[in-house]
Simulated assay, not measured.
Amino acid sequence: MSNNDLQARITEAAKAASGRASVHRRHLHANPELSFEEHATQRYIAGQLDEMGIPYKEIAGTGLLAEIKGEQGAGPVVALRADIDALPITEANDVPYRSTNEGVMHACGHDVHTSSLLATAEILNKVRSFTPGTTRLLFQPGEEKLPGGATLMIRDGALKDPVPAAIFGQHVHPPLEAGKVGFRPGIYMASTDELFLTVRGRGGHGAMPHNAVDPVVITSYIITAIQQLISRNTDPTLPAVITFGRIASDGGATNVIPNSVSLEGTLRTLDEAWRKELHVRLNKLVTEMAASMGATAELTIAHGYPFLKNDEALTRKAFDDARRFLGEDRVVELPIRMTGEDFAFYTHHVPACFYRLGVGSPALGGERPVHTDTFDVDEACLETGSGLMAWLAVKALGA
Protein backbone atom coordinates (compact mmCIF):
# COMPACT_ATOMS: atom_id res chain seq x y z
CA MET A 1 0.00 0.00 0.00
CA SER A 2 1.30 3.47 -0.86
CA ASN A 3 2.04 6.05 1.81
CA ASN A 4 -0.79 8.20 0.50
CA ASP A 5 -3.29 5.36 0.78
CA LEU A 6 -2.10 4.42 4.27
CA GLN A 7 -2.29 8.03 5.40
CA ALA A 8 -5.82 8.30 4.04
CA ARG A 9 -6.86 5.13 5.87
CA ILE A 10 -5.42 6.40 9.16
CA THR A 11 -7.06 9.80 8.71
CA GLU A 12 -10.41 8.15 8.05
CA ALA A 13 -10.00 5.77 10.99
CA ALA A 14 -9.10 8.67 13.31
CA LYS A 15 -12.30 10.47 12.38
CA ALA A 16 -14.32 7.31 12.95
CA ALA A 17 -12.68 6.73 16.35
CA SER A 18 -13.00 10.32 17.58
CA GLY A 19 -16.52 9.89 18.95
CA ARG A 20 -15.52 6.87 21.01
CA ALA A 21 -12.39 8.69 22.12
CA SER A 22 -14.60 11.44 23.52
CA VAL A 23 -16.68 8.86 25.38
CA HIS A 24 -13.49 7.37 26.84
CA ARG A 25 -12.17 10.77 27.82
CA ARG A 26 -15.37 11.86 29.56
CA HIS A 27 -15.67 8.59 31.45
CA LEU A 28 -12.07 8.82 32.63
CA HIS A 29 -12.41 12.50 33.49
CA ALA A 30 -15.48 11.81 35.62
CA ASN A 31 -13.75 8.92 37.40
CA PRO A 32 -10.19 10.05 38.15
CA GLU A 33 -7.85 8.10 40.41
CA LEU A 34 -4.63 9.14 42.13
CA SER A 35 -1.18 7.80 41.33
CA PHE A 36 -0.79 4.05 41.89
CA GLU A 37 -4.49 3.80 42.83
CA GLU A 38 -5.79 3.51 39.24
CA HIS A 39 -7.64 0.20 39.71
CA ALA A 40 -10.95 1.19 38.04
CA THR A 41 -9.04 2.99 35.30
CA GLN A 42 -7.02 -0.15 34.63
CA ARG A 43 -10.24 -2.22 34.42
CA TYR A 44 -11.80 0.28 32.02
CA ILE A 45 -8.78 0.24 29.69
CA ALA A 46 -8.65 -3.57 29.83
CA GLY A 47 -12.32 -3.73 28.89
CA GLN A 48 -11.74 -1.55 25.83
CA LEU A 49 -8.76 -3.67 24.75
CA ASP A 50 -10.88 -6.81 25.19
CA GLU A 51 -13.52 -5.34 22.88
CA MET A 52 -10.87 -4.69 20.23
CA GLY A 53 -9.35 -8.13 20.63
CA ILE A 54 -5.94 -6.70 21.57
CA PRO A 55 -3.94 -8.91 23.98
CA TYR A 56 -2.50 -7.30 27.09
CA LYS A 57 -1.02 -7.97 30.51
CA GLU A 58 -1.01 -6.10 33.79
CA ILE A 59 2.28 -4.42 34.63
CA ALA A 60 3.64 -2.05 37.29
CA GLY A 61 0.68 -2.74 39.56
CA THR A 62 -2.06 -0.68 37.95
CA GLY A 63 -0.59 -0.39 34.46
CA LEU A 64 -1.15 -2.34 31.26
CA LEU A 65 1.04 -3.44 28.37
CA ALA A 66 -0.68 -4.39 25.11
CA GLU A 67 0.67 -5.29 21.68
CA ILE A 68 -0.63 -5.05 18.14
CA LYS A 69 1.27 -7.19 15.64
CA GLY A 70 1.46 -6.07 12.03
CA GLU A 71 0.82 -8.61 9.31
CA GLN A 72 3.40 -7.43 6.77
CA GLY A 73 6.28 -9.47 8.10
CA ALA A 74 8.97 -8.98 10.71
CA GLY A 75 9.87 -5.53 11.86
CA PRO A 76 10.84 -3.50 14.90
CA VAL A 77 8.86 -2.87 18.06
CA VAL A 78 7.65 0.71 18.53
CA ALA A 79 6.25 1.71 21.93
CA LEU A 80 3.52 4.28 22.58
CA ARG A 81 2.94 5.55 26.10
CA ALA A 82 0.01 7.20 27.90
CA ASP A 83 -0.09 8.04 31.63
CA ILE A 84 -3.35 7.30 33.42
CA ASP A 85 -3.26 8.94 36.88
CA ALA A 86 -4.94 12.12 38.16
CA LEU A 87 -4.09 14.88 40.65
CA PRO A 88 -5.32 15.75 44.18
CA ILE A 89 -7.31 18.80 42.99
CA THR A 90 -11.01 19.59 43.49
CA GLU A 91 -12.54 20.37 40.10
CA ALA A 92 -14.29 23.73 39.63
CA ASN A 93 -15.67 23.09 36.14
CA ASP A 94 -19.46 22.82 35.81
CA VAL A 95 -19.57 20.24 33.01
CA PRO A 96 -21.47 16.95 32.55
CA TYR A 97 -18.23 14.99 32.89
CA ARG A 98 -17.10 16.77 36.08
CA SER A 99 -15.10 14.61 38.48
CA THR A 100 -17.28 12.48 40.72
CA ASN A 101 -14.32 11.67 42.96
CA GLU A 102 -14.18 14.63 45.34
CA GLY A 103 -10.72 16.10 45.66
CA VAL A 104 -9.34 14.24 42.63
CA MET A 105 -9.23 15.60 39.07
CA HIS A 106 -7.68 14.91 35.69
CA ALA A 107 -6.09 18.35 35.74
CA CYS A 108 -3.03 17.40 33.69
CA GLY A 109 -4.73 15.82 30.70
CA HIS A 110 -3.94 12.18 31.39
CA ASP A 111 -7.55 11.39 30.52
CA VAL A 112 -6.77 12.84 27.07
CA HIS A 113 -3.55 10.83 26.79
CA THR A 114 -5.29 7.58 27.72
CA SER A 115 -8.37 8.04 25.54
CA SER A 116 -6.15 9.12 22.65
CA LEU A 117 -4.02 5.98 22.98
CA LEU A 118 -7.14 3.81 23.08
CA ALA A 119 -8.25 5.46 19.83
CA THR A 120 -4.75 4.97 18.42
CA ALA A 121 -5.03 1.28 19.28
CA GLU A 122 -8.31 1.12 17.38
CA ILE A 123 -6.71 2.78 14.34
CA LEU A 124 -3.62 0.56 14.35
CA ASN A 125 -5.77 -2.54 14.78
CA LYS A 126 -7.64 -1.57 11.61
CA VAL A 127 -4.49 -1.08 9.52
CA ARG A 128 -2.37 -3.91 10.97
CA SER A 129 -2.73 -5.91 7.72
CA PHE A 130 -0.75 -3.16 5.98
CA THR A 131 2.04 -2.72 8.56
CA PRO A 132 5.06 -4.72 9.71
CA GLY A 133 6.49 -5.13 13.20
CA THR A 134 4.75 -4.67 16.53
CA THR A 135 3.26 -1.67 18.29
CA ARG A 136 3.54 -1.86 22.09
CA LEU A 137 0.98 0.18 24.04
CA LEU A 138 2.03 1.30 27.50
CA PHE A 139 -0.76 2.51 29.80
CA GLN A 140 1.38 3.77 32.66
CA PRO A 141 0.34 4.57 36.25
CA GLY A 142 1.80 7.12 38.63
CA GLU A 143 3.39 9.79 36.47
CA GLU A 144 2.59 12.46 39.05
CA LYS A 145 4.27 10.81 42.04
CA LEU A 146 7.78 9.64 42.86
CA PRO A 147 9.37 7.29 41.99
CA GLY A 148 7.35 7.71 38.78
CA GLY A 149 5.41 4.92 37.15
CA ALA A 150 7.87 4.85 34.25
CA THR A 151 10.51 3.37 36.56
CA LEU A 152 8.13 0.54 37.47
CA MET A 153 7.17 -0.09 33.85
CA ILE A 154 10.86 -0.32 32.94
CA ARG A 155 11.55 -2.54 35.96
CA ASP A 156 8.78 -4.92 34.87
CA GLY A 157 10.10 -5.26 31.32
CA ALA A 158 8.21 -2.68 29.26
CA LEU A 159 11.38 -1.99 27.27
CA LYS A 160 12.53 -5.61 26.86
CA ASP A 161 11.97 -8.73 24.75
CA PRO A 162 12.72 -7.10 22.41
CA VAL A 163 13.95 -3.58 23.13
CA PRO A 164 11.77 -1.05 21.24
CA ALA A 165 13.41 0.75 18.35
CA ALA A 166 11.57 3.89 19.45
CA ILE A 167 9.07 5.18 21.99
CA PHE A 168 6.61 8.05 21.55
CA GLY A 169 4.64 10.00 24.13
CA GLN A 170 2.42 13.05 23.88
CA HIS A 171 1.24 15.61 26.41
CA VAL A 172 -1.56 18.16 26.32
CA HIS A 173 -0.48 21.77 25.78
CA PRO A 174 -3.15 24.45 26.40
CA PRO A 175 -1.15 27.29 24.75
CA LEU A 176 -1.47 25.45 21.42
CA GLU A 177 -4.84 25.33 19.65
CA ALA A 178 -6.45 21.93 19.17
CA GLY A 179 -5.33 20.55 15.83
CA LYS A 180 -1.72 21.64 16.32
CA VAL A 181 1.28 19.84 17.76
CA GLY A 182 4.80 20.83 18.81
CA PHE A 183 8.20 19.10 18.82
CA ARG A 184 11.63 19.78 20.30
CA PRO A 185 14.66 17.69 19.23
CA GLY A 186 17.36 17.11 21.84
CA ILE A 187 17.14 18.10 25.50
CA TYR A 188 13.61 19.34 26.15
CA MET A 189 12.59 19.13 29.84
CA ALA A 190 14.34 19.41 33.20
CA SER A 191 15.27 16.96 35.90
CA THR A 192 13.10 17.31 39.00
CA ASP A 193 14.29 16.80 42.58
CA GLU A 194 12.34 17.62 45.74
CA LEU A 195 14.03 19.50 48.60
CA PHE A 196 13.06 19.19 52.26
CA LEU A 197 15.04 21.46 54.59
CA THR A 198 14.72 21.94 58.34
CA VAL A 199 16.65 24.66 60.17
CA ARG A 200 16.76 24.17 63.98
CA GLY A 201 17.59 26.99 66.35
CA ARG A 202 16.42 27.82 69.85
CA GLY A 203 13.11 29.52 70.47
CA GLY A 204 12.50 32.44 72.75
CA HIS A 205 10.73 35.74 73.33
CA GLY A 206 10.57 38.03 70.33
CA ALA A 207 11.66 40.98 72.48
CA MET A 208 14.80 39.15 73.65
CA PRO A 209 16.36 37.65 70.48
CA HIS A 210 19.81 37.63 72.10
CA ASN A 211 18.64 34.74 74.28
CA ALA A 212 17.49 32.70 71.28
CA VAL A 213 18.92 31.30 68.03
CA ASP A 214 16.42 32.62 65.53
CA PRO A 215 15.79 30.00 62.79
CA VAL A 216 13.61 32.43 60.84
CA VAL A 217 16.43 34.90 60.23
CA ILE A 218 18.92 32.12 59.60
CA THR A 219 16.55 30.53 57.08
CA SER A 220 16.24 33.84 55.23
CA TYR A 221 20.03 33.96 54.81
CA ILE A 222 20.10 30.34 53.64
CA ILE A 223 17.40 30.94 51.03
CA THR A 224 19.32 33.91 49.63
CA ALA A 225 22.58 31.96 49.58
CA ILE A 226 20.92 29.05 47.81
CA GLN A 227 19.66 31.36 45.07
CA GLN A 228 23.26 32.47 44.55
CA LEU A 229 24.11 28.88 43.62
CA ILE A 230 22.02 29.56 40.54
CA SER A 231 22.96 33.18 39.84
CA ARG A 232 26.67 32.97 40.62
CA ASN A 233 27.74 29.32 40.47
CA THR A 234 25.75 27.90 37.56
CA ASP A 235 27.00 28.38 34.00
CA PRO A 236 24.72 31.16 32.65
CA THR A 237 24.17 29.10 29.48
CA LEU A 238 22.83 26.16 31.51
CA PRO A 239 19.20 26.43 32.66
CA ALA A 240 18.77 25.63 36.36
CA VAL A 241 16.13 26.52 38.95
CA ILE A 242 15.83 26.21 42.73
CA THR A 243 12.47 27.28 44.13
CA PHE A 244 11.05 26.98 47.64
CA GLY A 245 7.27 26.85 47.51
CA ARG A 246 6.50 26.19 51.17
CA ILE A 247 7.92 27.54 54.43
CA ALA A 248 6.56 27.02 57.94
CA SER A 249 7.74 27.20 61.55
CA ASP A 250 6.96 24.78 64.35
CA GLY A 251 5.09 27.52 66.16
CA GLY A 252 5.98 31.14 66.63
CA ALA A 253 3.84 34.27 66.86
CA THR A 254 4.27 38.03 66.64
CA ASN A 255 6.39 37.90 69.79
CA VAL A 256 7.56 34.26 69.75
CA ILE A 257 10.71 32.98 68.04
CA PRO A 258 10.11 29.35 67.01
CA ASN A 259 12.51 26.47 67.52
CA SER A 260 12.65 25.44 63.87
CA VAL A 261 11.65 26.33 60.32
CA SER A 262 10.86 23.83 57.56
CA LEU A 263 11.01 24.42 53.82
CA GLU A 264 9.95 22.43 50.77
CA GLY A 265 11.14 23.15 47.28
CA THR A 266 12.32 21.90 43.92
CA LEU A 267 15.64 21.69 42.09
CA ARG A 268 15.63 21.51 38.30
CA THR A 269 18.37 21.47 35.71
CA LEU A 270 19.20 20.17 32.24
CA ASP A 271 22.60 18.66 33.04
CA GLU A 272 23.02 15.49 35.10
CA ALA A 273 26.60 16.29 36.17
CA TRP A 274 25.61 19.74 37.47
CA ARG A 275 22.53 18.22 39.10
CA LYS A 276 24.79 15.88 41.07
CA GLU A 277 27.18 18.72 41.95
CA LEU A 278 24.30 20.90 43.16
CA HIS A 279 23.24 18.15 45.57
CA VAL A 280 26.70 18.24 47.15
CA ARG A 281 26.89 22.02 47.26
CA LEU A 282 23.41 22.40 48.73
CA ASN A 283 24.17 20.04 51.59
CA LYS A 284 27.47 21.78 52.34
CA LEU A 285 25.96 25.27 52.12
CA VAL A 286 22.98 24.73 54.43
CA THR A 287 24.96 22.75 57.00
CA GLU A 288 27.86 25.18 57.27
CA MET A 289 25.78 28.36 57.10
CA ALA A 290 23.43 27.18 59.83
CA ALA A 291 26.38 26.13 62.01
CA SER A 292 28.05 29.51 61.55
CA MET A 293 24.98 31.13 63.13
CA GLY A 294 24.59 28.65 65.98
CA ALA A 295 21.90 26.50 64.39
CA THR A 296 21.72 23.12 62.65
CA ALA A 297 20.23 22.23 59.31
CA GLU A 298 19.04 18.96 57.80
CA LEU A 299 18.50 18.70 54.04
CA THR A 300 16.78 15.74 52.40
CA ILE A 301 16.83 15.54 48.61
CA ALA A 302 14.27 13.22 47.06
CA HIS A 303 15.75 12.21 43.72
CA GLY A 304 13.11 12.74 41.05
CA TYR A 305 13.03 12.40 37.29
CA PRO A 306 16.08 12.92 35.05
CA PHE A 307 16.09 15.49 32.27
CA LEU A 308 14.12 14.52 29.18
CA LYS A 309 16.09 14.20 25.95
CA ASN A 310 14.36 13.63 22.65
CA ASP A 311 16.40 11.61 20.20
CA GLU A 312 17.55 14.09 17.54
CA ALA A 313 17.08 11.90 14.47
CA LEU A 314 13.82 10.30 15.61
CA THR A 315 12.28 13.62 16.62
CA ARG A 316 13.28 15.43 13.43
CA LYS A 317 11.78 12.59 11.41
CA ALA A 318 8.63 12.73 13.54
CA PHE A 319 8.49 16.50 12.97
CA ASP A 320 8.59 15.94 9.20
CA ASP A 321 6.11 13.04 9.36
CA ALA A 322 3.73 15.21 11.41
CA ARG A 323 3.91 18.03 8.87
CA ARG A 324 3.03 15.59 6.11
CA PHE A 325 0.12 14.16 8.11
CA LEU A 326 -1.31 17.40 9.54
CA GLY A 327 0.05 20.14 7.27
CA GLU A 328 3.04 22.42 7.82
CA ASP A 329 0.99 25.17 9.47
CA ARG A 330 -0.15 22.82 12.25
CA VAL A 331 3.30 21.70 13.46
CA VAL A 332 5.59 24.01 15.47
CA GLU A 333 8.98 23.79 17.17
CA LEU A 334 8.88 24.19 20.94
CA PRO A 335 11.25 25.95 23.36
CA ILE A 336 13.01 24.19 26.22
CA ARG A 337 10.93 24.09 29.41
CA MET A 338 11.86 23.54 33.05
CA THR A 339 8.87 21.38 33.91
CA GLY A 340 9.51 17.69 34.40
CA GLU A 341 7.99 14.41 33.21
CA ASP A 342 8.73 10.82 34.14
CA PHE A 343 8.69 9.94 30.42
CA ALA A 344 12.28 11.15 30.80
CA PHE A 345 13.24 7.73 32.19
CA TYR A 346 12.32 6.08 28.89
CA THR A 347 14.44 8.60 26.98
CA HIS A 348 17.58 7.43 28.79
CA HIS A 349 16.98 3.83 27.65
CA VAL A 350 15.74 3.91 24.04
CA PRO A 351 15.38 6.49 21.23
CA ALA A 352 12.42 8.63 22.28
CA CYS A 353 10.17 11.43 21.09
CA PHE A 354 7.95 13.32 23.53
CA TYR A 355 5.81 15.98 21.87
CA ARG A 356 2.98 18.37 22.71
CA LEU A 357 -0.66 18.09 21.67
CA GLY A 358 -2.59 21.33 21.31
CA VAL A 359 -5.84 21.34 23.30
CA GLY A 360 -6.72 25.03 23.49
CA SER A 361 -9.73 26.78 21.96
CA PRO A 362 -11.29 30.26 22.18
CA ALA A 363 -14.56 28.45 22.98
CA LEU A 364 -13.09 27.48 26.36
CA GLY A 365 -13.04 31.15 27.35
CA GLY A 366 -9.28 31.53 27.49
CA GLU A 367 -6.39 29.25 28.32
CA ARG A 368 -7.07 26.52 30.87
CA PRO A 369 -3.63 25.72 32.32
CA VAL A 370 -2.72 22.24 33.52
CA HIS A 371 -2.66 21.59 37.28
CA THR A 372 -5.53 24.04 37.87
CA ASP A 373 -9.10 23.33 38.97
CA THR A 374 -10.51 24.75 35.72
CA PHE A 375 -8.38 22.75 33.28
CA ASP A 376 -10.33 21.51 30.27
CA VAL A 377 -9.70 20.79 26.59
CA ASP A 378 -11.19 21.13 23.15
CA GLU A 379 -11.97 17.49 22.37
CA ALA A 380 -11.08 18.04 18.72
CA CYS A 381 -7.58 17.31 20.01
CA LEU A 382 -8.49 13.61 20.30
CA GLU A 383 -8.74 13.09 16.56
CA THR A 384 -5.43 14.87 16.04
CA GLY A 385 -3.71 13.05 18.89
CA SER A 386 -4.83 9.54 17.96
CA GLY A 387 -4.36 9.93 14.22
CA LEU A 388 -0.91 11.45 14.51
CA MET A 389 0.33 8.90 17.03
CA ALA A 390 -0.86 6.08 14.77
CA TRP A 391 0.88 7.70 11.79
CA LEU A 392 4.15 8.19 13.71
CA ALA A 393 4.01 4.57 14.82
CA VAL A 394 3.54 3.09 11.35
CA LYS A 395 6.26 5.35 9.92
CA ALA A 396 8.67 4.25 12.67
CA LEU A 397 7.74 0.63 11.92
CA GLY A 398 8.87 1.15 8.34
CA ALA A 399 5.45 1.13 6.67
Rank of each mutant, 00 (worst) to 15 (best):
S35G: 15
F36Y: 15
E37P: 14
E37W: 09
E38Q: 14
H39L: 14
A40Y: 11
R43I: 11
R43A: 15
R43Y: 15
R43F: 09
I45F: 10
A46D: 06
G47P: 02
L49D: 05
L49F: 09
L49W: 05
L49I: 07
E51C: 07
E51D: 13
G53L: 07
G53N: 09
I54Y: 06
I54M: 11
P55Y: 10
P55S: 02
Y56N: 14
Y56A: 07
K57I: 13
E58T: 15
I59P: 01
A60V: 12
A60H: 03
T62L: 05
L65D: 02
L65C: 08
L65K: 12
A66W: 00
E67W: 05
E67Y: 14
I68P: 00
I68A: 02
I68E: 01
K69Y: 07
K69P: 10
G70W: 00
Q72F: 04
Q72N: 04
G73A: 07
G73S: 15
A74H: 13
P76C: 11
V78H: 01
V78S: 01
V78P: 01
A79T: 12
L80E: 03
R81V: 12
A82F: 12
A82T: 06
D83E: 14
D83N: 08
D83Q: 13
D85Q: 10
A86F: 05
L87V: 11
I89D: 01
I89V: 06
T90A: 13
T90Y: 12
E91D: 09
E91R: 08
E91V: 14
A92C: 13
A92V: 10
P96I: 11
Y97G: 06
Y97V: 02
R98L: 11
S99F: 11
N101P: 04
N101E: 15
G103A: 13
G103Y: 14
M105S: 07
A107G: 09
C108Y: 02
C108M: 04
G109H: 02
G109F: 01
H110K: 12
H110V: 13
D111Q: 09
D111N: 07
H113Q: 15
T114D: 06
S115C: 13
S115H: 06
S116D: 11
S116K: 03
A119M: 08
A119P: 04
A119E: 04
T120S: 07
T120H: 11
A121M: 01
E122I: 03
E122C: 03
E122H: 09
I123E: 00
I123Q: 03
L124A: 11
N125V: 01
K126V: 09
V127T: 00
R128E: 04
R128P: 00
S129L: 10
F130C: 04
F130W: 11
T131D: 05
T131F: 04
P132K: 04
T134R: 08
T134N: 08
